[in-house]
Design a protein around this nucleic acid. Structure first.
Lengths: 211, 211
DNA sequence: GCCTGTGAAGCTATTCACAGCT
DNA sequence: AGCTGTGAATAGCTTCACAGGC
């Protein structure tokens, strides 16, 4: 019933891979096949699937459809999750277009921005509201998860308003660590950190052992 | 000399925090202060700093300047890292604007796109080249790290060209796991996975124990 | 044979707890 | 007193290895 963030991430990945495989006509898949596509080990795949309670057949492997369903039951509370977006700058717009039509279970259904010129428009099929309407829209639509894509200086204030509006989870793109109450889950996407990590390992992942 | 990806990520974060603290006039900082700002434990901070070889004073804590320098020596091979970007769509543009002027050590110095309408322009101060020029520009400028922001279907092909051009590290935004040779480090930024994780934990991180 | 499911082992990361310093 | 640096302990995650099934 509980699972680590790593496992949750991989299950999400498996689901996407299974979806693709199904498109290509595959009906059953072995742990080692899924592992190869997901870049991990077969044992890892089997462990992760164990947490679902789903069990495959030693002969055919895992049934693609059934496994997707099982992951869905585990990951998704509802058939559809509407997400709010705070901050419709360059990054916000990119996220709007990224999440449009990509996934029938998942979409940004309301966006907010301080700028007058952006508010009250519809971008990529998503209505953009003035920031004052944040609380009312989130409450009215029963939105539980939000994406924060505002400048670092405004991020904590935005988060605070989201908590007050009843948000339970935040995906944060602002380069600051947000304070959050206990019952709110925050995941940071820190682009500078990621890039600096790549730079470090690009230099240091020398296979032929360091001198 | 070696460090885990987690440690590298935190060091990058510490540096950003130190930079801010310095702006605010702070000259020395204790592990517990840094920990509070970075959202981790004091012991964690001290361990991470241990890998640098830097050592603070039990009285004043860590000298902000000296610690920043020490992190810099550890993380950065050179004073400046130029990065290439492949794919100048919505996300690519957002990344261009994100990395502009944010960090004097780090910038996107060349972008590539298949689209005729984007190539041979300058966006956010970064020249955009036709995709055919990828190998030559990367080689001529000695670029070692690239960001992949193309559609999933094109990502592996783009990566392949980057490997051939001598790229050693990739930050990948395409929702596919890239195959990479041993000596290339790939970090995935998987937005759907992250968002699905937030949705899961927003629901399940109930403090008052599940019924 | 080659698969799954899983206890047990192995590894890695984090935290504890305390010596040493001022 | 309150801090750093660090060996030792703990917790968490991944892999091994094998029983059981066809």
């Amino acid at each position: 019933m509980v699972a680590s963030d790593k496992t949750i991430g991989r299950l999400s990945l498996y689901r996407r891979i299974l979806h693709q495989q199904k498109q290509e006509g595959k009906e059953a898949i072995y742990s080692h096949e899924l592992a190869a596509l997901a870049n991990c080990t077969p044992a890892q795949v089997r462990r992760d699937i164990m947490t679902l309670g789903y069990t495959g057949s030693p002969v055919r492997g895992y049934d693609v459809d059934a496994l997707m369903t099982s992951i869905g039951q585990f990951l998704d509370a509802e058939a559809f999750h509407g997400v709010a977006l705070v901050g419709v700058g360059n990054l916000g717009r990119a996220l709007l277009s990224y999440f449009v039509g990509r996934n029938p279970r998942l979409s940004i259904v309301a966006a907010f921005d301080v700028s007058e010129s952006v508010a009250n428009r519809v971008i990529n099929g998503c209505p953009v509201y003035a920031i004052d309407e944040l609380e009312s829209v989130i409450r009215d639509q029963g939105i539980g998860v939000a994406i924060v894509a505002v400048p670092a200086t405004e991020a904590q204030a935005a988060a605070q308003r989201l908590y007050a509006a009843g948000i339970r989870g935040i995906l944060n793109f602002a380069p600051v660590r947000l304070w959050a109450p206990d019952h709110v889950y925050v995941e940071d996407v820190d682009l500078t950190m990621s890039l600096e990590r790549v730079i470090y390992f690009a230099r240091n992942d020398v296979v032929q052992g360091g001198t």
